[in-house]
Design a protein around this nucleic acid. Sequence first.
DNA 1: TCTGGGGTCCTAGGACCC
DNA 2: TCTGGGGTCCTAGGACCC
Length: 398
Amino acid sequence: MLKSNNSKLIFHIDMNAFFCSVEEIRNPSLRGKAFAVGREGTLKGVLSTASYEARKYGIHSAMPIIEAYHKLPSLIVVNGHYSEYKKYHEMFMKIIYRYTDKVEVASIDECYCDMTHWIEQKHPIVLAKEIQAAILTEVGLKCSIGIAPTLFLAKMASDMQKPLGLVVLRKRDVKEKLYPLSVKDIFGIGKKTYPLLIENGIETIGDFMDLENKDLIISLIGINSYNYVVSHVQGNSSNVVDKDRYSDTQSISTSSTYDVFLESLSNIIDELRQMARSVYQRLIKGDYVFKTVTLTLRDQDFKTITRQKSFNEYQNDLYVIYDTIEELLDMYYDETKRYRLIGVGVSNLVHTKDSFEYNLFNLDKFDDKKNAITKILNDINKNIGSEVISFMGDKKDK
DNA sequence: TCTGGGGTCCTAGGACCC
DNA sequence: TCTGGGGTCCTAGGACCC
């Protein structure tokens, strides 16, 4: 049989319980125990990841800590160490780059690889086992690898077996292997859409693909979402691994939830300025300029509003962020409300060198200013080292 | 049970222009 | 006594992901 020229060999490589696995390496006494990564010594907040042992008790990522303790009072909760996770990310990625440079990094614990060029030299399963073994022996991490002709199917395949899974999913396997799975296993079906489908009797991917349900599903989620899912499941979605997919940042933001409600305006302004500095530092580090500043406020009823202001020209000044945030706060702060979360963001970003107006009018001043402000920021933030962990495991962990 | 943080993308409505 | 229509930009909200 002739093989299509476009046929590709895509791997999706996914670290198993990544944060917990790193914590086990750092502290081997955690091994085999029911533990989770979150915030030590508090009942507020949610978990980032749960160990496989903890998952047996129904504990998963994004679960409120108090609820997890309810399920398992002896649960161990440890603080996360994000900079460590980044180091381990670099370590396992280095191994993957030995095999190909056609890699799309999807998040800190997973990536897609185009392995098509290996077909003549090595059987895909042999190749995948080799990579798994290298990551396990050299870094100490277990991963699952999904092998398929498209990115979507490869991701579905890597989810099917954990830990150290290795699943091949060809187009002709879709009916047998994918159709029995729940619709919630589809990338893009989340906690709003899933119940909607279930209420209407659409429980499995097979139900979703049944043409008899087509009109019903379109009435529930719209034609665009319907077509999106169908083409992905059929294996007609992208097989292009795009190294640069996430290289251009669209927005930079920070936000924080407070244990006690923020009551005074001056208090809120202080916190927002601190956040503005942190956003600005990342902006400078990425060498971006911005056009839009966004303020986020969430009140005691969990109602969230975002208010933004855009400029006609690209901006690079910390004080523009300060002033805009205060302006927005003046306009939209409601003193009868109590706020539990506040946040600052910038968007409409371009790289400094790509900003025409910017180059034209401000470039000569830019480097001096940038260096001066970076130095000030470094001084200000020197003593702020505490790390807040904010990353969840994969969807299966939830 | 009581709901983190940092992102992306999509949609809908209004303003504005021709 | 009727009030086009397409394109684009902006804002706000929301779903979803890890």
